[in-house]
């Protein structure tokens, strides 16, 4: 156990099509467990883990694993609404699952906070034996939306720590920047408001304490 307390508590949500390996990724990351026979996820589940982002900074990740099927989205917002980061997972052997990543990106832009940090993970690279993986489209897309792209295998434990580390690092930066920006906004807005007497343009109250941080 590290003595230093985490610099931040970040809320991460795992999203993606059903059966791409969200639960397996999380179990591998948080508990270093893997099962070939993972039951379908019916309701979101929660795990947390501390990650070292650099030599002296660690952050606590509170990770929600969600049900993949679209029908369950109506139960989703409580998990991603105030998330600091989202890991969008697709299956490298299933092209359609990447389309769901794209639709999730759109959804998150609407529903989640602006500062949410995104990473995309192409999972199940262990299954792709035949040809060289061509993921240029996916990496380009990731770049275009400012997300990082990783390939992972929960089965072989490849690339998983890197994904979460990256997410943690960037989410921490983003959170700090957002906090700084909020302060700045507040300081610039306050005098103006006093000058013009517009009462309802009061800066938004700082975001409520997120559920699991």
């Amino acid at each position: 156990m590290r003595a230093a307390s985490p610099a931040a508590n970040l809320k991460v949500v795992l999203l993606g099509e059903g059966r791409v390996g969200k639960t397996s990724l999380l179990l591998r990351f948080a508990k270093d467990e893997f099962s070939d026979t993972q039951q379908a996820t019916i309701q979101a589940s929660f795990l947390s883990k501390k990650v070292l982002v650099d030599a002296e900074t660690s952050v606590a990740l509170s990770i929600w694993d969600t049900a993949g099927q679209e029908r369950f989205h109506s139960l989703g917002p409580i998990y991603y609404r105030d998330a600091d980061a989202a890991l969008l997972v697709y299956d490298v052997t299933d092209k359609d699952s990447f389309d769901r990543v794209k639709s999730w990106v759109k959804e998150l832009k609407k529903m989640a906070g602006r500062n949410i940090v995104l990473a995309i993970a192409g999972n199940k690279i262990d299954l792709d034996r035949q040809e060289e993986l061509d993921l240029t489209e996916q990496t380009e897309y990731a770049e275009s939306i400012g997300a990082s792209h990783f390939t992972t295998s929960a089965k072989l434990n490849k690339g998983i720590d890197a994904v979460f580390q990256d997410l943690a690092k960037r989410a921490l930066v983003s959170k700090r920047r957002a906090a700084a920006a909020a302060e700045a906004v507040e300081s610039t807005l306050v005098p103006r408001r006093q000058g013009t007497l517009i009462i309802d343009e009061r800066p938004k109250a700082p975001p409520k304490r997120s559920c699991c941080s």
């Binding site: 059966r19 993972q38 379908a40």
Partner: peptide, 13 residues
């Protein structure tokens, strides 16, 4: 397709 995806994930044990 959705059904097939979940078949092996229903009571796998």
């Amino acid at each position: 397709l959705d059904i097939i995806r979940d078949i092996s994930r229903t009571f796998p044990s």
